[in-house]
Computed example of a mutant assay.
Amino acid sequence: MRILDPRLRLRHLQCLVALASHRSVLKAADALAQTPSAVSKSLAELEAIAGETLALRHRKGLEMTPAGNLLLRHAAQAMGALREGFELLGSGAQSPAHVRIGILPTSAARLVPQAIQQVRERYPNLLVSAHGGTNADLLVRLKLRELDLVIGRISHPSEMVGVSFEHLYMEPLAMAVRPGHPLLASPTADPAAVREFMLVLPMKGTYIRPAAETFLQSSGIGMPRQIVETLSSTMARALMHEASAIWFAPYGAIEPDLERGLAHTLPVDTSPTSSAVGLTTLGADELSDSARLFVDALRSMAGEMRNRNRRSLLHRA
């Protein structure tokens, strides 16, 4: 049996998890609040300890080797178990049931709130902690066992190593504007006219940003001169109403505004942007009892979401 190398430190494992999730030394350094040189040094030290190459640098980003992926699974489990152990120290009596979820904009407006309401009706003492962020950030926290599950669009395959994704429903992006917007006067959206208005997009680095940009280019609309990047629905909604901006985001984030008549979708077929929405976990066997209860509620609500998304995304009268 191989003896654990005494040179191994917690920072080595943190570095490995961050690099695997962000696929970039710069992004991993930012997530860890370290310098890129410190992250590169930690990786080099870990590779020396392992006696294996753990990651390869390419023009498009960092790629984990088979050895890196193997070590990653155990590193994430070890760090999560260690964190759970410290949380239990001095806890005394059993803590109240608690589920920690990561939410992306696509699930924050409708799916998750309804699931919380459903599960709390049956289990009023269940504590639910909801954390927002980008896909990459939330997956890092999931692998570190800071979260029980993440709800939203499926991420890049390279970020899904060591986790399990359960498909719930398909969802497209939508281009929403305020009631009375000039672009609603025509039955079809003129690409040149669309480009004249401010466009609110998800942040660069999110998985849906490339999907939005690809659609804009392939549809002939192109990129407007004025672009605002944000993950805040509050900010996007304010710009839509106050600056006549076009809010380009997952349909689930915009749906409540559409149903209340506070927004309308442009007459543009955005169905090519459809992607799977679901829940990401470390595996069914890793779920706590409280997390299982919440997953059951999510599955129940997902049936309604599937029916909803069969409706047309074209402009409503």
Rank of each mutant, 00 (worst) to 15 (best):
F215V: 06
R316G: 09
E45D: 15
A302G: 04
G261D: 05
E196F: 02
E87F: 12
S42K: 08
L62W: 11
R100A: 05
M301C: 07
T214W: 04
A55L: 02
R59S: 15
L88N: 12
I221L: 14
V25L: 08
V268L: 13
E47C: 10
I151N: 04
G220R: 03
A115V: 03
V194Q: 06
D257K: 10
E159F: 05
A109W: 00
A317H: 13
L138Y: 02
Q118C: 06
P202E: 05
I3S: 13
T188A: 13
S129V: 07
G51R: 05
S129A: 14
R73Q: 12
R7T: 07
A78E: 04
R110S: 14
I101T: 11
K60F: 14
L279K: 11
E159I: 02
N309W: 15
A29C: 11
L88T: 11
I208G: 08
M170R: 14
L111N: 10
A211H: 09
L13K: 07
V17Q: 08
L126R: 04
F86N: 11
R59C: 01
L142Q: 01
L258K: 06
I154L: 12
G51D: 01
V112E: 02
L16M: 04
V17Y: 02
P182H: 02
L168S: 04
E242V: 00
R7A: 14
L4G: 02
